[in-house]
């Protein structure tokens, strides 16, 4: 029985360690959490194997055989030594795990030098980001989250309405956004790529669609992105007038406003399914309708979609210039 148990544990542990339980690890902290999880697996699997081996052994060896219908087992009431062992060993194991965890937690949450603060604001049903220390005081609200690789970040998380939770699975840390307080956590992204942002606290009908993307880029790309966010928008060279406006509007659509996360638009190459397909929904509509559907989305709802999911404050988060350019772009992109 011991041998079987040992072999089963080893096989179990080997398989468990081989499987990649976590999504691609994109932060220093995620690696530490993943390692901690592996430790837990190594500790847990023998426990489970122990219990199961005993159960199966009992079922096989001690089952009632024909003729034993009236037989009883021996009147064993207990064994002090055994009970001490199975009280003390788990207790010690748990003390060990908790101690190890304490050190891992301290390491994960340790403040680092050169930390960049990013303000995260959750609202029903989108995230907006702000970089208070950067861009020389020029404020801008981003709907996309860009982070430079290997730079420690502290997210300061707030909410405008109900409780949300700011989570990037690939970073592995999360924290609730709570009305009335500012919560925070520290992360150091260390892998280039685009990762989903997921809201992890039920916040209403749009909870399952409240997603975003974080782009971890090289420091150079990050600086370039910052500049593009704070510099006045430049139309592509060689265009002017309406075409220039439309080009700028396309930048708003695919960039700062993040419309593609929820809407499909062939011209912009986006395929979001949360909201109506704009190729059909805006076809043939006039400028006034397009403008209203951005700043007052609940006024008219496309059949098959629900009220209250599209953020209602694009009128404030977009500048007048941006809004105008966006409308121009959409009119042009959907009238082909």
């Amino acid at each position: 029985m011991l041998v079987i148990g040992l072999i089963a544990s080893i096989i179990g542990i080997a398989i468990a360690l081989a499987i990649d339980w976590f999504p691609p690890l994109a932060s220093k902290q995620a690696k530490q959490v993943s390692d901690l999880f592996d430790v837990l697996l190594v500790a847990s699997i023998p426990v489970f194997v122990l219990v199961e081996v005993v159960v199966l052994f009992c079922v096989v060896k001690f089952r009632q055989r024909p003729g034993q219908e009236l037989m009883d087992g021996p009147p064993i009431h207990g064994n002090t030594g055994l009970e001490v062992v199975w009280t003390a060993v788990p207790a010690l194991l748990l003390v060990g795990l908790c101690t190890y965890t304490y050190f891992v937690l301290r390491s994960i949450e340790k403040p680092q030098p050169h930390t960049m603060v990013v303000n995260v604001t959750g609202q029903q049903f989108t995230w907006t980001f702000e970089y208070p220390q950067l861009a020389k005081g020029k404020k801008f609200n981003a709907v996309q989250l860009y982070l430079p690789k290997d730079r420690p970040v502290q997210f300061k998380v707030r909410t405008l309405d109900v409780i949300h939770d700011f989570w990037v699975p690939n970073f592995s840390i999360k924290i609730d956004a709570v009305p009335g307080i500012t919560t925070s956590y520290r992360i150091t992204p260390n892998r280039l790529g685009n990762y989903p942002i997921v809201c992890a606290e039920l916040c209403g009908i749009g909870h399952s669609t409240m997603r975003g993307t974080v782009h971890v880029v090289t420091p150079q790309k990050f600086r370039a992105w910052l500049r593009s966010q704070t510099a006045p928008p430049k139309p592509p060279p060689g265009t002017s007038g309406v075409a220039a406006q439309a080009a700028l509007g396309k930048q708003v659509f695919t960039g700062s406003a993040g419309c593609g996360a929820c809407h499909t638009l062939a011209d912009a190459g986006t395929s979001g399914k949360v909201g109506p397909d704009l190729d059909q929904g805006l076809k043939g509509k006039d400028v006034a309708f397009i403008r209203q559907s951005i700043v007052d989305p609940n006024a008219q709802i496309t059949k098959g979609f629900a009220k209250g999911i599209m953020p209602q404050d694009f009128g404030q988060t977009l500048s007048k210039q941006q809004l105008g350019d966006l409308v121009t772009y959409l009119k042009q992109a959907t009238s082909k």
């Binding site: 976590f22 902290q29 530490q32 959490v33 901690l36 999880f37 837990l40 847990s44 426990v47 489970f48 748990l94 795990l97 908790c98 965890t101 891992v104 937690l105 994960i108 939770d165 989570w167 699975p169 592995s172 840390i173 999360k174 992890a200 606290e201």
Partner: peptide, 17 residues
């Protein structure tokens, strides 16, 4: 066992909700 894993704070933070 999954409960003990959930006691461990960093794991719980990852898998909460």
């Amino acid at each position: 066992i999954s409960g003990v894993m959930l006691a461990i704070i960093p794991i719980d933070i990852h898998v909460s909700d």
